[in-house]
Write a protein that binds this DNA or RNA. Structure first.
Lengths: 144, 144
DNA sequence: GTAGGACTTCGAGTGCACTCGAAGTCAAGA
DNA sequence: TCTTGACTTCGAGTGCACTCGAAGTCCTAC
């Protein structure tokens, strides 16, 4: 899973490893770093990125934030809060609580959409069954 | 709610009515029509759009498709199927069933995201409680 | 008759989140 | 030595779904 080991217990991930591990593309990983969502990642002697376990964990957290619907712009602000120290924890809670609400609202909306979709499906399936029962012409012949 | 009535039981909606009724912007309503998602809407003598009840219903259905995650491109194909006649109903069912699955998958993912988010919130709230319990310096003074 | 306001068309612009490509560097293998 | 291939940076390009703005028309009220 990890590409190389640099000393006992000091595992690190190449960008390929990190991409495979997180499901982000390599492009996206560099993009996140460029945008400051991820602190500059350690580099090997040849200049290649070496992601730590913690880096991978942070990437996964970023993915969670995205998945809750948080835009990149606000993720930057959130990351800034985490860098600013423990006195920003209340602020962070406020932000996460906000996205928790938004997520709950989306989930409720999705449930309704699912219902409406299934209703439509039922309607179509009913039409399909009716078409099956009654031949499409009046000759009484079954279809080819 | 409706702007005008043109004969008994023949209600119609101005674009403003339709926008208010569906939550789409007027821009979006014209855009959908331009893209062929909506058949050309009737026009009053002055060239202004007059949406029928059916039009509004179709718009709501389009919104449902969008909400299930269907891109505009595929919505066009779906609309084309509905215009092609009843023999496309099986195809339409296949499409809707596909988006039903996708929606279910998203809902499951969202449930997991919600859990992870709440876990993080719990963590932060714990840190907050701990910080409240222990003064931020070692003088033993309570904070201002 | 003319000013205001809401509509029309149409093409262009926006915001978002990637996604890509060119040009360069570096290390390993034939 | 030379090719291969994976990485690097950086700016530019993409795709999506709107969203806007300019220019024109038409009706109403003053």
């Amino acid at each position: 899973m990890h590409s190389k080991s640099y000393g006992v217990g000091m595992e690190s991930f190449t960008i390929d490893d990190a991409a495979r591990e997180t499901g982000c593309s390599k492009h996206t990983l560099r993009y996140y770093e460029r945008e400051g969502l991820l602190a500059p990642v350690a580099k090997a002697a040849n200049g290649h990125r070496r992601y730590s376990e913690d880096d991978v964990g942070r990437i996964r957290f970023l993915q969670l934030l995205r998945a809750t619907g948080m835009p990149i712009r606000e993720m930057k602000e959130f990351v800034a809060l985490t860098h600013a120290g423990d006195h920003t924890i209340a602020d962070r809670v406020a932000v996460l609580a906000h996205y928790r609400e938004a997520l709950l609202a989306r989930m409720a909306a999705d449930r309704e959409h699912l219902q409406r979709l299934e209703h439509k499906l039922d309607y179509y399936r009913g039409a399909l069954a009716a078409a099956d029962a009654v031949p499409e012409d009046i000759t009484g012949n079954v279809r080819a």
